[in-house]
Amino acid sequence: MSASKADAVVATPTQPPRKQAPSGARRASKPPRKPSGIVKSVTPYLLVAPAILGIAFLLFYPVVRNVMLSFQHYRFKQLISRSADYVGWENYQAVFKDDEFWEVTRRTFYFTAINVVAIMVISTLCALMLMKLGKTMRIVVLIGLVAAWATPVIAATTIFKWLFRSDNGVVNWALVKLGFDYEGYTWFAHGTSTLTVVTLLIVWQSIPFATLTLYAGLTTVSTDVYESARLDGAGPVRIFSSITFPILRPIFALVTSLEVIWIFKSFAQIWAIAGENGPINDVRTLPVYAYQQGMSLKLFDMAGAISTITVLILVVMLVFYFRQMFKQEREADK
């Protein structure tokens, strides 16, 4: 959905290279072939067909199936008998009547907001720092970022779970050494402390992508602009707010929207940390709630309704967002 838009957005600050690339490609493909009409018109479709089929099978089919499920009465019995009745909006009505759903939805929004703000602030600072660092340190930091990014989600989650163990976790040990009363503190006993750990984990996992993207954007801004700003007596804060941010606004917008998607749909971290022994009912967000209803309670229909609602919320948020963005872009072009 966002791929083509993403390309367009990324391309804005780096226009010259993009303009060259396609023309070069066209020139290369022109001379040798003289295909006939039909072959010429069919070939591109044949070439993309496998990709389209793959996406249709792996993405569209499950989505359609999920939406269908949400309009059926589909539970364990129906799974075994393989027949289910359509019940209209019954599942949606049940979901909306449930206080649990609203509590979870509220938590999902707060959780997303806190995480995205933290990620964007820290990543921006990291990216700005990278610009100022000398070559060696910059490479060291980049390696660190890439390593954090390359750590598989479940591996990272398991490591965090160990770090915060109550009996022999490194975090409690360090806090005790520093003089805090954290002897045997159980991080995963309460909703707030569990969510704190999950937030730390997710922010840590997200920073590399955001930082590297913003850093890539920063490197495209011509140094002349900064120099003249500095000559005019602008301080670092002023430079950022009046030059860097406005120029890179599309990149900031893109990274923010990607992070919103990423956090809103984050599941593995929360489930792996709190699913089995933690206070899962106090920390579940919408995707976790959908999974819980479907896989644990075998209410596949409710899970279908909740996940469809989750997708719709995301779409609405992002459509609103993209419209805003394109409006700004159009104004900027005038």
């Binding site: 109550s166 009996d167 045997g184 159980t186 991080w187 995963f188 006993a189 089995e276 022994n277 933690g278």
Partner: peptide, 8 residues
């Protein structure tokens, strides 16, 4: 004893 309070 010393078993974890948050484990099974």
């Amino acid at each position: 004893g010393k078993a974890a309070k948050d484990g099974d």
